[in-house]
Design a protein around this nucleic acid. Structure first.
Lengths: 213, 213
DNA sequence: ATTACTAGCGAGCGAGTAA
DNA sequence: TTTACTCGCTCGCTAGTAA
């Protein structure tokens, strides 16, 4: 299978590009891929037979470029990876009763100042808790840009760093807020927005809610 | 190296996605990847040691999901492939004296009608010949959409099919025209545009000219 | 300098089977 | 049913060297 040759194919494609030819010696390739000159020589000959590469001998070594099968294989492989990493555009969850401390934390001026600066809005004092499938949420969140909200200390205690992720909730700007040291169980995400989302959107506990990029 | 495990990693990532877990047996994987149950079992254990995957035994087989190193490796690999296939946005060449038949062919009403319909402009009667690096031109052209210009017959002779590729030349709409049975040597591409480009842009033979997507 | 053949060796494969 | 151990054998690796 072509996977046996993928590392070398990638090496050639990286150095030569998709269409250009590369003049190089088997010794050089062997060093860079941490294998022997003999193995490189044999593999390149095998790859030529499979039409993964074109290979011509020169004085200084070999002139190598991708052949049709090599290009096709890399293209196919790239598209497969593209599908795997396809970004999730939205995630839907069920509104869940929060533990109620959101209101207190969110409204602290040291946080609010940063929400305004870094997320672009002053948050309604209170968070909306959304129960989501953890794997879906991870895929969704991993496609978003993280905004760091610094922690701070008062004379009484320390308030931790938060990570914000800008989202839209029915086209209202909002954010997912994840405390560095999460107080939440897995599968629950905490939302903030400029308004009381429950009131504004007519939502109750156990309502379904969709959030988007 | 992680390349040794890439095929199996891709298999898992395709089936499970980036974060979800997959319940499957080593026998099933072995069949689909055309190898033995024992090899799958061993490789999965090795991959667990390398933190490429997480692996938990269940009654029906194994629960498998990507682990941090596996995700990182696939991501890195995907980005490498992305660079390889990054589309070329422009190519620069040297204006070259054409063989002069362009004026005649381009101005045939059977072609002109299609230029207007499919490329969006009536072509100035004459082509501009550009000498480019063949590999660069291929990379550039392969990122463009092909527009087919049909051939036709007169009572005297046959005029072949052309392939057009829409481009911009200093923001003027134009096209690369490649005759099915090319009369040109490699490394020369033929351009058409609504105007006399040489006059409009003040160009002479041997001037440098950049064309863009 | 190179590439690539031969030969010998060792890692990895898969059949058999235990758990 | 599974997974995964042992073990024999093969395939692919590298050293030596020819071309």
């Amino acid at each position: 299978m072509a996977y046996d040759y993928l590392e070398m194919l990638m090496y050639i494609a990286k150095k030569a590009g998709v269409f250009k030819a590369l003049e190089i010696s088997t010794i050089r390739i062997a060093k860079e891929l941490k294998t022997s000159q003999q193995t490189v020589s044999r593999k390149l000959r095998d790859m030529e037979k499979l039409k993964l590469i074109k290979r011509t001998a020169t004085q200084k070594g070999l002139l190598i470029q991708l052949d049709a099968n090599g290009r096709d294989f890399l293209k196919q492989h790239h598209s497969n990876l593209g599908n795997i990493f396809a970004e999730k555009e939205e995630v839907t969850g069920i509104i869940t009763k929060g533990i109620g401390e959101g209101r207190y934390y969110v409204n602290l001026p040291q946080y609010q100042k940063q929400f305004k600066e870094k997320l672009g809005f002053k948050a309604y004092p209170g968070t909306l808790n959304l129960r989501v499938k953890q794997s879906e949420a991870l895929e969704f969140i991993s496609s978003l840009e993280a905004v760091e909200i610094s922690g701070f200390e008062t004379k009484d205690r320390t308030f931790g760093k938060l990570t914000g992720y800008k989202i839209r909730i029915n086209n209202i700007k909002g954010a997912i807020i994840i405390p560095e040291r999460s107080r939440h169980e897995e599968g629950i995400i905490e939302l903030i927005a400029p308004y009381d989302l429950k009131k504004k959107l007519g939502l109750k506990d156990n309502s379904r809610l969709k959030i988007q990029k």
